[in-house]
Amino acid sequence: MKHAQIHAKLLVVAAIWGLGWPAGRVVAADVSPIVAAWIRYVIVAGLFIFYLQRKDNWSYPSPTQWKNIAYIAFFSTFLYQSLFMYGMKYTAAGDASLVITFNPLFTAVLAVIFLGERLTRNLILGLTMALVGMLVIFTASPNTDIPELDRWFGNTFIAGAALAWAVSSILMKKLMSDTPEDAQQPLTPVLVTIWASLVGLLLLTPWAGIEIAREGLPSPSFEAWVGIIFLAVFSTVLAYVWFADGILVIGAGKASFYVYLVPPFGILGGWFLLGEQLGATLILAFALIVAGVVIAQKQEEENEQPS
C-alpha cells in the first residue's frame, strides 16, 4: 500500500489518543487537575524546545502573531486542559472519548458564526444526529458504577473542552492562512502548536502555583506518573508530530479519517485498563455522533461551491 508507513503511524496516533482517555482518568483520580495539567505541559514544553533546537526551519512569531497565539494558548492549552482534567475526574474514559468527538461539529458551527460559512442542511442534520448521540451518553451510559450526577458533570466538562478546542481551531485556521503586515509568512501548524503550548504553560503556572501553595507539593503515584508521561510524551508531542506528517503526505481529509478510530480505542482502553463497562448504548452513541460528523463535514464541500 502506498504510504504504508504513514498509515501505520496514523493508526498508532489514533490508539495513543484513544488510550489518553483512561490515562487521564488515572491521573485525575490521583493529582489535582490543574497541577496535573501543569506537570504535563512542563514535560511537553521541554520536549518541544528540544524539537525546535533540532529543526532549521523554525521561526519566531511576529507581534501580531504572538497576540493570536496567546488567544490560541488560552483556549487550546489553558482552558482545554483544565476542562479535560476536571472532566476525567468525574466521568468514564469511554464516555469522554465519545463526547470529545463533538469537536468538529462545534468547529463547523463556529465557522458559520465567525468565518461567514453557510449554514446548510447537512450541518443541521449532522448536528442533530450528534446531539442525539450525546444525549444517549448522558442518559444511558453503561458505566453506572459512576454516580449519574458525576457523569453529567464530567461529560459537560468534556463537552466544554471540545468547544474550547473548536474555538482554538478557528483561531489557528486564521493564523495559519493569514499573513499580518508585520510577518513574512503564516505560521506552520507545528510552530503554532509549539508556541501555543509554551504560552499555555505560562497561563497554567499561576493557578498551579496557588494549588501547590494551598495543598503542598504533589506526590503522584507510580500509575499517575505513567499517565502524565504518556499524555505528555505520546499523546501530545509524538502523536501531534506524526499526525502533522500524515497531513503533509496524504492530506488532511485522509488523515482525519483516523480520528474516527479514537473513541473505539478510548472505550476499549477504559474497559481493559480501568474495568469500565461496555454496552450497546456506547455503540449507538458512537454511530450517531460519527455519522453526524461525517454528514456535517460535507458543509465544507458545499461552502466551496459557487453560490
Rank of each mutant, 00 (worst) to 15 (best):
I43R: 03
F257R: 13
A108S: 12
K174W: 08
V262Y: 06
A92W: 04
L110W: 07
D182V: 09
A255F: 03
Q297Y: 07
W152F: 14
K173N: 14
A28S: 14
T281R: 11
S59A: 13
L201N: 01
Y258D: 09
I34D: 02
D150L: 14
K174L: 14
A296H: 04
L191V: 11
W165D: 02
E181K: 11
Y60G: 02
V27T: 10
G87T: 03
S219E: 12
A208Y: 09
V290R: 03
T91L: 10
S168I: 05
A92M: 03
V293A: 09
A4V: 15
L261W: 12
S256E: 11
L217Q: 08
G126D: 05
V226H: 05
W152A: 13
A70L: 07
Q53L: 12
V293R: 00
S141G: 02
G253T: 15
E302C: 03
A196G: 01
L83G: 01
F234T: 04
V27W: 08
P189M: 05
I16L: 11
K298N: 15
I247V: 15
G133H: 03
T120C: 03
Q305S: 09
I34K: 01
E148V: 15
L274I: 05
N143K: 08
T77L: 07
A296D: 06
V226Q: 10
N122G: 12
E117F: 07
S219G: 15
I228L: 09
S197A: 12
V233W: 03
V233Y: 02
E302M: 09
L83P: 04
Q5K: 13
M1D: 11
V290K: 06
E181F: 07
S32Q: 14
L171H: 01
G209L: 04
L119D: 07
P220H: 02
T281F: 06
N122Q: 09
I158V: 08
L288P: 03
P263V: 11
I170Q: 10
V226T: 09
S76E: 12
A8S: 12
F230L: 06
G266Q: 10
M1F: 12
V233S: 01
G253R: 15
G154M: 07
K89M: 15
T236C: 08
Q305M: 13
S82D: 02
L127N: 09
I16H: 00
T188C: 10
T193A: 13
R214F: 13
A224K: 04
T107I: 05
V192R: 02
P189W: 08
Y260F: 15
I39S: 00
L284P: 00
W225T: 03
E223A: 15
K298H: 14
L105T: 10
G292H: 02
F153P: 00
Y260W: 04
G269S: 07
P61Q: 00
F114G: 02
V26D: 02
Y60Q: 13
G292V: 13
S235P: 03
P220V: 02
Q305C: 08
V293I: 14
E304Y: 06
E211L: 13
A8R: 08
A23G: 04
G200H: 06
G266A: 07
